[in-house]
Amino acid sequence: MAEFINLYLLPGVAVGCIYALGAVGISLIFAILRFAHFAHGDVMTLGAYLAYSVVIALGWSVYAALPFAILGGALASMGIDHVVYRPFRRSPGIIVVIASFGVMLVVRSAIQLFWGVDILSYETGIRRPIPLFGDIRLAQKHIIIIAASVVIAAALHWFLSRSRMGKAMRAMSDDADLARISGIDTEKVVRWTWLIGGGLAAAAGVFAGINTKLHPSIGWDLLLPLFAAAILGGIGRPYGAIVGGLAIGIAQEVATYPWLSELPLVPPAYKNAVAFFVMVAMLVWRPTGLFKGRVL
């Protein structure tokens, strides 16, 4: 039992936090701009590498570098929107998806050019897991990932439910035209959406880098589970995306537990297949997701 919790369930929660942070951005962008942002994974990668540069340049711990990565990811996303996506505001959503393909290529190849393609790591050496109580042990990185994600999610909740901009966002998500004629500055809402989505993606990217290693396709590899999480939670629903992210992360890790025999139920290499399975099952059973997303 302790082994199940230590090696499968808790890492699953940590991975789920990473997915949740990424999927919230995808869902939020969908709610406001009505398109599936394919370059989201590469914004995550960008955040992870920005943190790496701060770690190398200033010799700080990666956790101290996190705010810089979040800021960098937020500003980069807003900049990309300004240069690339803004001319498409009145185009059908699927055209913007193609443009996000282009952004994906540009961001990834820029990362490969600038940082190279070698596998990197924020820190060397092994850290001993911390005993929590009894046999339950938690790896330090998992504690920090989970704790930081909870703080970020709480801040996001406060922002969406209490702040003026958060309310404007929810209004625009419900009905963009109605929001506009009510005097809401929709372009400002869009800017904030990118700041938040990009910042969360960067945080998720840093956590993914802490959890494993850094490589240029770290974010792209997570795109499938992120979409699965967003669909599971009901696309366009940020809170649903948090639940979806956690569920997909835990399901992926727990599915590799040797449930039936000595062997893992699902080979670890096929973790992403679990996300795909959940995605397809949701599309068949309930395309609006658990929390009634907006599209069909």
Binding site: L223, A228, A273, V280, P287, V295
Partner: peptide
């Protein structure tokens, strides 16, 4: 039968699998 974005997301999934 769903909106176009779903096919986009699912097709990236099938390629990954």
């Amino acid at each position: 039968g769903l909106k176009g974005d779903y096919l986009a997301m699912a097709s990236i999934g099938i390629a990954e699998i």
